[in-house]
Amino acid sequence: MSSAIVDADALEPTLQSILDQRSLRWIFVGGKGGVGKTTTSCSLAIQLAKVRRSVLLISTDPAHNLSDAFSQKFGKEARLIDGFTNLSAMEIDPNGSIQDLLAGQGEDNPADIGGMGGMMQDLAFAVSAPMPIPGIDEAMSFAEVLKQVKSLSYETIIFDTAPTGHTLRFLQFPSVLEKALAKISQLSSQYGPLLNGFLGSNGTLPNGQNLNEMMEKLETLRETISEVNTQFKDENLTTFVCVCIPEFLSLYETERMIQELATYGIDTHTIVVNQLLFPKPGSDCEQCNARRRMQKKYLDQIEELYDEFNVVKMPLLVEEVRGKEKLEKFSEMLVKPYVPPS
């Protein structure tokens, strides 16, 4: 207990605060590639499932690891994880969801053969072309996912984000996006009647698409995106868990990410430091001891720099953390700090 007295003002080194914050709706887990994002997000999901009614774990990483971690295949539809009653998972591809959006557009309108002929396709091209509006693909895919997720009633949704670290980039320019879409809507309401006069009573465009319907779709998209923005910037609803390992580059990226999140106005107050080495006392493993010293150095730096964060220290295990049991055991350490064997 002496350590508790010494660190009276330091924040708890656990994720308990996230478990306790019942209002949290969205939790993002992010960091550089290979630092244990997926393991952390799975563990967090397991812990959350114990205290929440229902939890959904979504991976937006194209290299889907959820299936690997739980040894179970997940797809675009939310599916219960084996052995849990209130924890589901799904894997989405940020690039694929635009294609889905377009495909959905085609299905909605049977008269529209192909459905890809018109402006939606132009939009999709603008999105996927080499010089797109940065982040619009992510924005659209998020909007799409959130529309789906909203209809399902999960209490908490955890995002295992892609390692590019730009998952939330679109939050930087909601105003730009909104302005552009608002302009389109405005134009359509101004010139829509005129165009419809040309196009005939049913307002069908030459390529078979319906103008009004398309404008409605864009309008809904705009509304969804702006709603997402307000939700993500609310610290009562959303938080970001930074995952790193005690190495220079990872730390550097984490600092950058935290600054970036601050500019977006997204709350973040937890850092999970993974892969810590705890060689047994008297161990003569030269590499382990050297590595331990280096990790210690960066750990000290982390504690000095992020004194307002919950810094969770996770040990490097001797086995891969895969499968329900191992993940459950690992996840315990998010709540009860790991004590190295002395």
């Binding site: 220079f248 730390l251 550097y252 600092e255 000290d300 730096q301 982390i302």
Partner: peptide, 17 residues
Amino acid sequence: SSQDQFAKWAKLRRKHD
């Protein structure tokens, strides 16, 4: 040095920005 004194460096960086 960002490698040797990361905390100091990061704080300076924030101030700089």
